[in-house]
Nucleic acid binder design. Structure first.
Lengths: 248, 248
DNA sequence: ATGGCGATTATGTATATACATATTAACTCG
DNA sequence: CGAGTTAATATGTATATACATAATCGCCAT
């Protein structure tokens, strides 16, 4: 459709309009710009904003609703949902949302931050070939008073330059990155591990206690962005993923 | 819509027409009536069959395509795809393939088999409401000489009657079931756990050692089919899942 | 035969329109 | 003033229509 360039689409690719609306809104939600509970614009407002028919807007919103990102209420509008299903756990992995879904107050605390040139191990973790600078972060996610997860993260500064100026003292890097770098691909590794001294100390559990480890590598347009490792005490966490061949 | 009753819909519920088309076709595919490669009717044929507009048919087919059940080719039509969606999301659970990929000889050994009427716990595991008979299986997957994974499985006999006559002495139930029951939905739970006495004994590891536990429930057309729990010694196993942001 | 080209065909996406339905806000009446 | 009714509103689903696009078929000229 020749709608795309009239809208001033920056991507040169030809994306259908309803796809564009869909990803715009998803981006706003995933980045946190529209928090859970936020009422997204009415169909007729989006119709005006994108200069298209209501059907097109409706198609996009219906998809978001089916994907569980928003909830639609007649006469009231469409609202960002608190994610809780598979999407939350494996696609985003926003720990704040997980913790708040449990009804517990969430807090993030940075333990360590280093900026350095990448070494061989960093490059292996990132799945990167070239050298460059990285930021190394370690932090704790709390659910109430108790540590909920330990986070160890590498950020590739050649992919996200601004991360070099960010302290990440009370903001976890995950949500921060999501708003800045649209990820195109991610790979998860999930395994069990016995807590070593350092992990046991950080998470306030016994050394040797079983932990669930979720590692994630993210790429944006072929460039490695970040590698993150979440360590959960076994009793605190279960990942749930639900699949359906079709989404009736 | 008053379309539903004009069509002679057997369900008393009011289902939208495109939902009905969608589930009709999905059923045909999952049941095997339309095998992979089969060309499903053209939009204009379905338009005639369901007496509706092409947009409505198109909406249903587009959803099926996005869900990966069918593939649409311009000028040629829409074709049933070879099932592959599951592997894309969490590629696990043909343990034989996993083991052989490591270059180790694979062997399965049944430890226990019981046939009984389901109790409350069974029904909870299966996610089933009604009573009925089940088969309980326990078995070990070996990689070379060492135990690779412990499998504990419940099979709902009212969904898979033939399973009652099968011994599963050297064939794991997973591959056996896959050939017989087209699954329509699956839910995975993944967590870490310390090995108890029984598990440690079976897997030949120390009690208290960390294990990765993968539980899977499977449904076929709303009916619970099986619940299976795989327990892996932590050092032997990592799950890998790779995602690309879907539908957008 | 055969390579290219135009016609045909099925899908892809968008439009304007219509009416149904659920829910809330406003209003009316005892 | 409160309960019940009515009107307004946002979404839900369907229609007919239009044109774009990709792939294929068949014809024709070489």
């Amino acid at each position: 459709m020749n709608m795309a360039e009239t809208m001033g689409l920056e991507d040169s690719e030809t994306i259908s309009l309803h796809q564009r609306i869909l990803s715009d809104i998803r981006e706003k939600i995933l980045s946190g710009a529209w928090a859970p509970g936020h009422r997204i614009p009415f169909e007729h407002e989006l119709t005006a904003e994108y200069r298209c028919s209501r059907m097109t807007v409706n198609k996009a919103l219906s998809q978001l609703a089916k994907a569980g990102l928003i909830e639609r209420r007649r006469r009231s509008g469409s609202f960002v949902r608190r994610p809780q299903s598979q999407a939350a756990v494996l696609e985003l992995h926003d720990i704040r949302i997980e913790v708040e879904a449990l009804g517990l107050p969430y807090r993030y605390e940075r333990l360590e931050r280093l900026k350095r040139r990448s070494n061989a191990e960093d490059r292996a973790l990132l799945g990167s070939s070239g050298a460059g600078s990285v930021v190394w972060l370690e932090g704790l996610h709390f659910a109430g008073e108790r540590p909920f997860a330990l986070e160890q993260r590498l950020i590739n500064l050649s992919a996200v330059l601004e991360a070099g100026d960010e302290e990440f003292l009370e903001i976890a890097a995950g949500p921060w990155l999501i708003g800045r770098v649209p990820w195109s691909e991610a790979e998860h590794r999930i395994r069990a591990m016995a807590a070593d001294e350092a992990i046991a100390d950080a998470l306030d559990i016994d050394p040797g206690a079983p932990c669930l480890v979720v590692e994630r590598r993210t790429w944006s347009a072929e460039h490695p962005v970040t590698h993150v490792r979440f360590v959960y005490p076994a009793e605190s966490h279960t990942l749930v993923a639900r699949f359906t061949p079709s989404q009736g």
